[in-house]
């Protein structure tokens, strides 16, 4: 694997540090795949791709800076924090655990995520939560167009505004929006915000540390006309 110059220092518990100016992403990811516990600190990420991908253990990972494509992809159990902005595809196909982006996220954040939680403290770009399959995504800012496209399961919470075509071709995912919504996507409609939804959303916001009042949100979901084929709706497809 070449040379690795990570430093192990005791800070109460075992902490491994990787400086990606000198250490390789491959060495970092191998270390994360080999570990079963502990805290890894990543410095100087410099927008590199695939940082902290494919973790399958309850690790703590903090990344100090901006990351490129596919950071924290396929995450299972780990808790990953990115202090800067994330490039396209952050937490793609997340299975469990949490990924927190303190800055903004680029396109298709949380795409295809099956479980766990993705928190974006800034804005997310287009196609946030595309094809999500059970992940909870909480965005403190706004999201771009085509978010929750073909979303199947899970919750997408948008504290700011949503761009056009929100929830296009949505299945059974649940979308909460506090701000303005552009044009809704095909088969996406506003639905009643019941007490149960307010309660669920209150818990999710509290769990993710996002300060927003659940009763200020509106709920959107599927009209269920597209995915049960009906000849009367042929023109909608």
């Amino acid at each position: 694997m070449g040379t690795r110059t990570c430093h192990r220092v005791y800070l109460g518990s075992l902490m491994t540090t990787f400086d990606l100016n000198t250490d390789s992403v491959r060495a970092l990811n191998q270390s994360l795949h080999d570990a079963s516990s502990g805290h890894t600190s990543v410095t100087k990420p410099g927008g590199q791709h695939c940082i902290a991908c494919g973790i399958d253990a309850a690790l703590e990972v903090s990344i100090d800076g901006h990351v490129g494509y596919y950071c924290a992809g396929m995450n299972q159990e780990a808790h990953i924090t990115i202090t800067g902005n994330a490039g396209p595809g952050v937490a793609e196909n997340i299975m469990s655990g949490t990924v927190r982006v303190k800055g903004n996220a680029s396109q298709y954040a949380g795409a295809s995520g099956h479980g766990g939680t993705l928190i974006i403290e800034g804005d997310a770009s287009s196609r946030c939560g595309i094809s999500m399959k059970g992940v909870d995504i909480v965005v403190a800012g706004s999201v771009g167009h085509m978010s929750a496209f073909m979303a199947q399961k899970g919750r997408l919470v948008i504290c700011g505004d949503a761009g056009d075509f929100l929830g296009d071709s949505i299945y059974e995912a649940c979308i909460y929006v506090r701000g303005a919504v552009g044009e809704l996507g095909a088969d996406c409609i506003e639905k009643e915000m019941t007490d149960q939804h307010v309660q669920d959303l209150t818990q999710l916001l509290a769990a993710t540390g996002i300060d927003a009042a659940a009763d200020e949100f509106r709920r959107y979901g599927s009209a269920r006309k597209l995915y049960h084929f009906d000849i009367d709706h042929a023109n909608d497809y």
Binding site: G46, G47, Q48, Y69, G87
Partner: peptide, 10 residues
């Protein structure tokens, strides 16, 4: 600056 990816700006 503008770039296709942040790593160029980095």
């Amino acid at each position: 600056a503008m770039a296709s990816e942040f790593r160029a700006i980095a």
